[in-house]
C-alpha cells in the first residue's frame, strides 16, 4: 500500500508538479475552446454542402468525410506537423493542431449534422417555403433547430471525443495538460503527475459523460 502511494499518489511530487500542471490545464482549456467551435462550424459547413443541389458537390463531401474518418487523428496531426515542413510549410505546433482538428472533427461533426438534417421531415421545409421563406431562412429557422435537437446525444458524444483528443497535442510538444504531466514524470521518475492529469481530465469531462448517459438512454427507447 505504502508502495502504491509512493508511486502514484506522492504528495511531495503533487506539490512540486502542481504549478506546471495547472498551466498545462489552462492550455488544454484554451485548446478545447478553440478546436470545438472550429470543428462544429466546419462540420456544419460540410453537412450543408452535403445537401447541395449539385451531385458533384454532394459526392465531394462524402469523399472528404470518409477520407478524414479513415485517418487516425494522430496520423493526421503528425503528417501535418512533421510532413508539411518538407513542402516548405512550417507551421507552429498550435496551428498544426488546429488544422488537424479542423479536418478530423469537421468530418465527424459533419456526419452528425447530416443525420440531424435528414431526420427533419421534408414537410417542414415545404411548409416554411410555402410561407415565402427563402432556402437559407428555412434552413436557419426551421430545419437546423430541429436537426440539432434530434441529434443532441451524438453532438455531445462527439464533443466529448474532441475534448479528449486535445491530449494528442502532447505528441507535437504543445504544452497542454498531458505534455506537462509527462514532463513532470520524466523529471521526477514518478507516475504521480500522470495520475494528477488523469484526475483533472476526470473532473472536467466526467459531468459530460454523465449528461451523455442521461440523454442517450432516452433517445434509444423512443425511436
Amino acid at each position: 500500500m505504502e508502495f502504491i502511494l509512493q508511486n502514484f499518489f506522492n504528495w511531495d511530487i503533487v506539490t512540486q508538479a502542481w504549478p506546471l500542471l495547472l498551466r498545462g490545464f489552462g492550455m488544454t482549456l484554451i485548446l478545447m475552446a478553440a478546436v470545438i467551435p472550429v470543428g462544429c462550424i466546419g462540420g456544419l459547413t460540410v453537412a450543408l454542402l452535403g445537401q447541395s443541389r449539385f451531385r458533384a458537390v454532394r459526392w465531394m463531401t462524402i469523399i472528404y468525410v470518409d477520407f478524414f474518418r479513415a485517418f487516425p487523428p494522430l496520423v493526421l496531426l503528425i503528417f501535418i506537423y512533421a510532413g508539411l515542413p518538407f513542402a516548405g510549410i512550417d507551421l507552429p505546433a498550435i496551428v498544426s493542431v488546429c488544422l488537424a482538428f479542423l479536418l478530423n472533427s469537421s468530418a465527424y461533426y459533419g456526419e452528425v449534422f447530416r443525420a440531424g438534417i435528414e431526420s427533419v421531415g421534408t414537410g417542414q421545409a415545404e411548409a416554411a417555403r410555402s410561407t415565402g421563406l427563402s432556402g437559407f431562412q428555412t434552413t436557419t429557422y426551421v430545419v437546423l433547430p430541429q436537426a440539432i435537437r434530434n441529434v443532441l446525444p451524438d453532438l455531445v458524444s462527439n464533443t466529448l471525443e474532441v475534448a479528449k483528443l486535445t491530449s494528442l497535442a502532447s505528441v507535437v510538444a504543445l504544452p497542454e495538460l498531458l505534455y506537462s504531466a509527462d514532463m513532470a514524470r520524466s523529471v521526477t521518475f514518478n507516475a504521480t503527475p500522470i495520475v494528477m492529469a488523469a484526475v483533472l481530465y476526470l473532473v472536467l469531462l466526467w459531468p459530460l459523460v454523465r449528461l451523455l448517459s442521461r440523454i442517450e438512454h432516452g433517445s434509444m427507447s423512443s425511436r
Binding site: 508502495f3 502504491i4 509512493q6 508511486n7 502514484f8 466529448l160 479528449k164 483528443l165 486535445t166 491530449s167 494528442l168 502532447s170 505528441v171 498531458l178 504531466a181 509527462d182 514524470r185 514518478n190 507516475a191 500522470i194 495520475v195 492529469a197 488523469a198 481530465y201 476526470l202 469531462l205 466526467w206 459530460l208 459523460v209 451523455l212
Partner: peptide, 20 residues
Amino acid sequence: MRALPPLVFILLLYFGLPGV
C-alpha cells in the same frame, strides 16, 4: 474509461506500473 483520454491511460500503465 469514457472520460479519460486513452493516451493518458496508456502512459499511466506504461510508466506507472513498473514503479510497483
